[in-house]
Design a protein around this nucleic acid. Structure first.
Lengths: 199, 199, 199, 199
DNA sequence: CATGAATGAGGCTTCATTCAT
DNA sequence: TATGAATGAAGCCTCATTCAT
């Protein structure tokens, strides 16, 4: 096997084990066994268990941000951009159930380093949403409001819908929740009767 | 000291230590020391470290539910009841910063038992919200919608605003965010122009 | 067993194991087993394997210095003091074969921290000897010389005689070598015909 | 590169790494990297890390003994031979700082095999010195004495002066200590006023 | 009830050595 | 010969839990 394949296979194994067991219950031995290699091999590709999970988080957020940027391209109004962002986030998590579990549930209180990184990523995303909201308010598309709070609340709504899907499997297909979720978010921000629909 | 006081003092110590360190970094020895007793004494009051945190979670949710019930009493319309519930939740967490950190951040991926319990509590609360929404829809106060998704999203909005306050201390006074949050939640559910204000 | 006894017993075990195996081959488990306790117990008394050996070194040097000071008291001339110091050192090591092995052989290149401490202790002792030599030169008891080099050489002579005893067991009784060693050291420094004899 | 050159280059690398890090902290990977070859290549030239250091020790002692033999040739009296030996040893170490560090400091307690070999080498050298001393005593050049102890003490004096130079860099030029060291050794053995000077 | 010393399982990590290429 | 990825044994240390006092 090539060096890159081995790395991928370890990442896949780590993803599966962290998602299943959580950070602390997952052992490096578990991950190595899942990847079909010896324990020491893990350390040829990651400097530590912590670095491995951090890498997983980084990688996912890179992809997530890319998908958001891509989804926004070609949307006309700010509100359409915002709705497209929400849809992109939901779809990104829907397509990566294990990573979603790790990023949204397992990594939370596991280690100060994860906490710090996750907090920063939440903040990054909140800023993006807040900019959209502010622009929409300026454009008269939304009523004046505390865009900081709205942004955070909006993100929370999206977050929780995904977490509920992860935990309870409801709805079975996460995308089925997207219309209602979009609606909730945009109406919550004060968008008028006509909600933008994003395919 | 009486038996009950000792238990309380251990719970208080556990609360402080878990909030500060997280579940895994907190040691039973830390908790005992913080409570001013010997390590072994801890096990006279809790069967395990896990049971202690579980107890903390239970206790908090009991109080939370009580506050919600109390807040809803005397409200007229369903939407007023719903808004009162949100306000009660926010105020409950605002008044218990340590417990909030534990319940909303630290306990998440720490142990399957916590995950299970937290999931159930989220579900309990979601059901309560959903019943309100359904009733409001029936009464024509809200437009027809997927109340399951709306309920989850609404809870997420509340959750995230509290977490942002815990993590970044913004806003400094959590209750300052309540009007914007309430607005977001009710508008998100489709409530008309006139938002109910709950003191 | 009392807390102090347990500590002593662990120190004794560590002393035996380090002397027998050397720092790296000695495992904490070995030490604990030798002391008849579980592995974890070791860490109730020492913060690390390294700290344990460092403690052993410190303790020995404290005793060594005390014996030197004691041996010098009541000696008349500087040269008698010097000879008494040499005798005290030899006797201190003779009475602590295990510690001698550790301090003079096993700890040498085992860890930078040991190296540093041992170097400092050698330097301390060298300074003491050099002061004696300088005083003796001033008093006309010794010819002018490079007292720095002489001091180091003198210490080396003592060191090596002890090490040879440790390694080859020759002479069987280390003190039997004392007259010849004393003679070598004092004559080497230029002391005249009449060597001081120290009982 | 030829087979012999590669071996030399690995030995040179090992010398540098062992001197810098000590036996245990030095890794085979470090050595290979320093030599600019792959890790596995190391094992084409040495059967083990241990064998490599042992080889270094052997090689150095071979050279050392050769220099001693050479230095003694053409000296007249036994004492001159002895003084020439001491000078040869000092110069050999002075010219091989890294090997000196390894042989005199790093290898000491690192492994039973090293200990054994070093002890034997010390013994070899001690026998050589002792033979000189015995011959000098027979010739009436030195007073009767325990030549075994004197030989060991003499070696220790030389040893320590070199170690002090290695550790503290004092004197900056080791050969500057040679007159005082020679003087100490010969006077210590009982040589009369007239010290032999060896260029 | 209270103590806190003791336990020992188990985790992360390193590194000498091997072997397929 | 040379490579360097892979191995897996082994070590240090932590900490939830127990139990004799």
């Amino acid at each position: 096997v090539g060096e890159q394949e081995r790395r991928e296979s370890l990442l896949a194994a780590a993803k599966a084990v962290f998602a299943r067991e959580g950070y602390h219950r997952a052992t490096v031995r578990d991950i190595a066994r899942e990847a079909g290699v010896a324990t020491g091999t893990f350390y040829l590709y990651f400097s530590s268990k912590e670095a491995c999970l951090l890498g997983l988080i980084e990688e996912f957020y890179r992809r997530l941000m890319a998908r958001i940027v891509e989804a926004r391209a070609g949307r006309g109004s700010v509100l359409e951009k915002l709705a497209a962002s929400v849809a992109a986030v939901v779809r990104a998590f829907a397509g990566e159930r294990d990573l979603a579990r790790i990023v949204l549930i397992q990594a939370a209180g596991a280690h100060p380093a994860f906490d710090a990184r996750l907090a920063q990523l939440h903040a990054d995303f909140a800023r993006l949403v807040e900019e959209d909201l502010a622009e929409a308010v300026d454009a008269g598309l939304l009523p004046p409001q505390d865009t900081g709070v709205t942004a955070v609340a909006l993100i929370g709504a999206v977050h929780e819908v995904i977490v509920a899907w992860l935990r309870e499997g409801r709805p079975a297909d996460l995308e089925a929740a997207l219309p209602a979720l979009s609606s909730f978010c945009l109406r919550g921000a004060g968008a008028g009767v006509a909600e933008r629909r994003v395919q």
